[in-house]
Design a protein around this nucleic acid. Sequence first.
RNA 1: CGGGACGUGGCUCAGCCUGGUAGAGCACUGGGUUCGGGACUCAGGGGUCGCAGGUUCAAAUCCUGCCGUCCCGACCA
Length: 571
Amino acid sequence: MRFSRYFAPTLREEPAEAEVVSHKLLLRAGMIRRVASGIYNFLPLGLRVLRKVENIVREEMNRAGALEVLMPLVQPGELWRETGRWDKFGKELLRFKDRKDHDFCLGPTHEEVITDLVRGEVRSYRQLPLILYQIATKFRDEIRPRFGLMRGREFIMKDAYSFDVDEEGLDKSYQTMYEAYERIFKRCGLKFRAVLADTGAIGGSESHEFMVLADTGEDVIATCPACGYAANLEMAEAQREFSYPDEPEKPLEKVATPEARKVEEVTAFLGVSPEKLVKTLIYIVDGQPYAVLIRGDHELNEIKLRKALNAEEVQMADSETVEKLTSAPVGFAGPVGLSGVKIIADKAITGLKNFIVGANEADAHYVNVNYPRDFQIEAFFDLRNVIEGDPCPKCGKPLKLVRGIEVGHVFKLGTKYSEAMGATFLDAEGKERPFVMGCYGIGVSRTMAAAIEQNHDENGIIWPVNIAPFHVVLLTLNPKNTSLMEVSERLYKKLEAEGIEVLWDERNERPGVKFKDADLIGFPCQLVVGKTFEKEGKLEIKERATGEKRLLSEEEAINFLKERVTAGSGE
RNA sequence: CGGGACGUGGCUCAGCCUGGUAGAGCACUGGGUUCGGGACUCAGGGGUCGCAGGUUCAAAUCCUGCCGUCCCGACCA
């Protein structure tokens, strides 16, 4: 492809609409353009990258024995009523009516449609296991779309669904998909980790998230360098047992703490360390008020809270509710003398002596509070986020926290959907049984963004070779020099003949412009035909990732590129 | 949904406070010079100043409402 005939509108300046690196660079490199909030056009360069990721996903799904299908974006509300998700799903499910006034929605996921398909066609255990997948557009009307392709409303996703006769079969399908995912992200050239995850709204028993490691990631992962354990924050059990000094219990005392609400304010005012303070957070758990005690220097994890109480929904109480329950403004809640609210606590509080809590009274805290002397606790749970240095739940060595971007998620669903929708088959005994299902997603467009978050520098994107829009950019620095153009054209044809994807920049632009664009777009290699060739008959190859340059003959250059392309293919 | 910021040629922004009939740089078109890290020069084209009301002799500028975008929070595969 000749650059002069291509459509790659690069931007010299940072677009005002973007904040995060991948979003800025996708816009600047002329890969995407915004159509509406969270909805984007893919331009030729961006589409090429998307297709590369898709193809890797497709090849590995096929290799794993999954079969590709294509399901509709528009789905009947009827199916969603069957599983109860028509009412349960929030506003992310974009609902509308057709001309006959029938309910429809844009599919945020396809469990209902696939289960409907399979229940209609698969009758016998002999037809199992079955894994179907698609690569398609999804729509979720996100509360707040952001970060470009990272959290769009419309996005490209690969979703696969497995159907098995029993749990054992599901374990096998799950394992197959897990391994396919490892191959996929490896082939995409990304540094990633599979981590234990919560199953969330989709439901099910076991789940792993595949995280692309990047400092700019939204998610925090607890990992153990010693044993390889890796988990999401809500899954990483905080096991550390604190031993507090065995001081005598001092008498309870109320002190004035004017305007001191936050932990830092109270500890600063009283001149104590935050671990001496116990925060009292008021939550509404399935409609019931709870006071949750947690050490001042720790963070509550709401998912842990939800699971500890076996609840459907946990929500932090609004300030009105807090005032009603504690008869004090927000910031002064405490367990002492609190009634009408169940009190639970994080395990780390066990054994803490002479601590500080809110006094359920404006501008006042209690000091020298002791449990169980001064108040009661219904139960202790693990409710806090682990912190760096906490012991690994598996081997006890200190944990590390790293950041990542979730690009894949595998779930064991079990029979949740098949039962709700009456999707059954006959087993060997002629007995009717529900399919045991799994579901497996990969955010394809998000993977593109994650790849950039992980691989970029101040000059632009650094694509891993397997998902780069082109393998190499051929830069003819002075296109008015006919001998340079002849050499370039010959090279261009040879490269194409070798199956190397080349974008030939023969634009009548100054060299600086071409170098800048090449760096920005992030081609893995730049092949330069310029002065060096005129003087020495040598081509220059620059590797984008390292900046390393080498001078080579035509033959050597082509061989070098061939090697680079195959070495990266991961086949 | 709560908090904040913004909306002026394709892009980045100035002008708004203090009302007087729209600017700069980049990009674009034509000419000339230049050609290994976002050139120079001459001549051009291009703007309902987000939309709708209102105030005023006069509104990009002041007022009201709406729309859109982005950020933070809540939420989230």
